[in-house]
Every structure is written in C-alpha cells, then in structure tokens.
Design a protein around this nucleic acid. Structure first.
Lengths: 225, 225
DNA sequence: GCTGATACTTAAGATTTGCTTAAGAATTTA
DNA sequence: TAAATTCTTAAGCAAATCTTAAGTATCAGC
C-alpha cells in the first residue's frame, strides 16, 4: 500500500509520513506541486492513495488533481485543506477528488477516510518469489530468471504453497492437506512425483535443487534475502 | 435517484427533503429509527443513498447501519452527526458507513458528498482493446482490425469481461459469476460454448487464439504492450 | 558396509478437462 | 402467432493432467 503526500509544510508532511509509515504504508513525500505531479505521473498505478494539499507554491492542488485524473481514473485522491470555506472544497470534489479533510484534522480521522477509500481494492499479495523464480497469482504465470515456465495446476499449487511458506519446512502431511485437500494420509507419495516435476522444470542443471528435502519431515525452499 | 433520510428533527428533515427534491432526487423521510430501518429494508436496492442521523430516538444510527449492511453491501450511507468527537465518526465508518458529515453542515457540502458517492461510473473507461480487437462500451460495438464484428449479448459480455481483465487469468467460477450471474457452480460448461463462438468470430485463421486457455483454471487474453 | 526406511524416477492407466457439434428452450422480432 | 435469433444442455471425442505402482537410488543407524 503506497501513499503519495504532496504538502509544502514540512511539519505536517513529516507528521503524516511518520504516522502512515507506522500503519504499514509506504510513503512518498513531495514538498511542492511540481514535484508532486511528477512523482504521481511517473509512478501512476503505483499509488493506492494520494493526499494533496490544497494550497501549494507553484502548481496548486486542483491543477495537480486534474492532471492526475487525465492519466489515472481510479486512484483515490484526498484533499487536505486549511480553507474552511465549503465552496472551495466542493470545487475540489468536482475536479475529480474523492474526498477532502479540513485542517486541523486528527490523524485517526484521516486514517478512517483512507481506509474507506481503499476498502474497495482489498489487495492480497499477488507476487511471490525465491531463488530466481517469480510467481504471479493474478496472471497465473511463473518465470525463472525472467523466462516463462509452464506449470500444470497441481504443480502451480504446490509451488505456491512452498513460496507462501518460503524459509519454513513444509511437512508432507500439511502439503497433502493444503494442496491436495486430503486429510487422512496413509499415502502421500503423490508429492514425490510432483516435487520431481517441479525440479525438472525449475532447477538449474548441475546445481542443488531449489527445493531441499528434509528427510523424514518434508521439503523447504530458502528465502533469498 | 432515490434518497432515504432518517432524521427525527423535523426542521432538518424538511430542509434536506426540499433541497434534495429541488436537485431532482426522489426523497423519502423517516422520523425515527424503526421506521427508517423498515423503509430501508423494504426498499433495499431502491435507494441510491441513505442519510442517517447519528442520534435517533429508539434505534440509533449505528444499529440501523449495521442492519442495512447485512442486507445490502453497496448502498452508500452517510452519517449526519452533531457530535464533533472524531472517535464516534470513526466508529461510524467502521460499522460500514461510507462517509459522515458534521452538523451544522452546508447543503452544498452535503450535495458534494452525495455526488462523490454516487459517481461510480464517471471515471469508467469506455474503450477497451487487445490483440487488434477494440470494444466500445458506449456504442456497444466491436471491431477487429477496424472491421465491425457482430456479437450477441452474451458474447459481448464475455469479451468485455476478458478485456477488463486483460493480462490476468479469468477463472471459470468468476466468469460464471460475473457474466452469467450464477453463484453456485456445479456446471459451467456454457463458457466453453461461448469461448468457441468468440474464437470463431475473432481469431485469425492458422494463428493461436487470442484467448489462451489456462487448463484447470480458466482463460486469459494477453495485454498487448 | 549392511539393512530398513525414505525418497526419486519413470511410465502406464485412469481421470479430468476442454473442444466441438447439434438439438431443443427460451427470447426477441416481425 | 410464426420466424428468427440467441441461449443452454448434452454428448462424443481428444488431449492434458493426475494418480498409481513398481523399480531404483540414497540415507541413517547399527
């Protein structure tokens, strides 16, 4: 979740950045309109919310808002406005902003509004990676060093399970439960066959496998940091 | 555009009703919580916006909001609150409201917020394209390399779904939900028939289909950059 | 180093999934 | 109401995928 703040008053900008980072957002700050628009347009599609100060030196908030809307129709934009005249705020909404909040505002209030706007796109993590292998859940693709690799459904599910648990041992019984949905295991030798398939498709020749076997327990792939 | 107002103070209720009717909305008023909930639940799906007073005799706004949300996940709800403590408003948003506005508020401000919540489709894309195929939602036309192609309704919806999700896998279950509005799937083989139809009408002869099948999962069309 | 247990590999048979047609329902249009 | 179009169901076929099974290799403890 990435947020862009465009705000010239350093104290406010810092206050917001710190608070939002504490909440787990990635935050970028621009201290004037020009930089703000630049950042917004360069990383369009990257930001989940944009906070725009109403009064900015150079380009003002409305201009920025209009320009962003030309490029990205969807990103939620919230105006921060010191002016308490309602008409201005109304004008802001009309230019394509999604909400505004009056200064001084409480951080709680801002957070609540951000959450409301983001509630629409509850995004779970869609990309997993380890050992040069990258899996994109949305696209349902797997690449090894950038090259596409074709996997069958079971292969895909199994790899997904490993990647979601990278760094941890995956026990055979948990694997058969999660990937095969079998809850009484007298035989889980299917796993062997699919491990073999994954290794054939994804291992480097003459290298130890990216899936290491933990004898008597299960398998594991190393997390790469 | 139909609006429900739940407000016990007659003066405010009348002020709102008159103003909103002037703006062309159809307005219903309930002067207590019980009536309000009754109206809301009886005409669920009818209202485009619901304005809820925070403090009501009998059932209070939060209760009503919760109950409405159980039935209808989508209708925008705005709280009218005299309390200016932020915490309460935040709490209101958490119970499922979409916005709140503090009394006293200007009518302009309320109108602006209503418009924001109703502006679902103003930012919608009208033209989609991929693989030389272009779809215009407004005109309801499809062209392939500039030439018009006739599609039936279902073919059109299915193609629209693919284009709106180009680059991503479209799972059979999501397709049957979104295009056919069937929410319990033990058979979704209709999809096959329509995939076949789209391919016949839109594929190049002797070329791989523009809709690639992802076995065991669904279908996908590649985004063309 | 032997031995039993565990894991790996391979291939064949079973199963699932998707493609294609065609016919009968359900709509819409004339 | 008839005709035409569109939608859904069903069934046969082909192919990809999954599972089983059996033989081979490797490991750990004795």
């Amino acid at each position: 979740m990435r947020i862009l703040i465009v705000e010239d008053e350093t104290s406010i900008a810092n206050f917001l950045r710190d608070g939002l980072e504490e909440e787990g957002f990635a935050v970028d700050v621009a201290d004037n309109g020009k930089k703000g628009l630049q950042l917004a347009l360069d990383n369009i599609e990257e930001y989940d919310v944009i906070l725009l100060d109403w009064m900015l030196p150079g380009l003002n908030g409305i201009e920025i808002c209009r320009n962003i809307r030309l490029e990205n129709k969807a990103v939620p934009i919230i105006f921060l406005t010191a002016k308490d005249t309602v008409d201005d705020a109304v004008f802001g909404l009309e230019t394509g902003a999604n909400d505004y909040i009056r200064k001084p505002f409480s951080f709680e209030e801002l957070l609540a509004r951000i959450r409301v706007l983001m509630r629409k796109n509850i995004t779970e993590l869609v990309v997993f990676s380890a050992a040069g292998i990258e899996m994109n859940i949305e696209k349902h693709t797997v690449t090894k060093k950038g090259k596409a690799v074709e996997l069958t459904q079971k292969e895909f599910s199994l790899l997904e399970y490993f990647l979601r648990n990278k760094g941890k041992v995956c026990r055979r019984t948990r694997i058969i439960e999660k990937v095969w949905d079998i809850h009484f295991d007298y035989d889980n030798s299917v796993i062997d066959v699919y491990i073999n398939a994954l290794r054939k498709k994804l291992d480097e020749p003459c290298q130890p496998s990216f899936i290491s076997t933990v004898r008597g327990v299960g398998y594991k792939i190393e997390s790469d940091e």
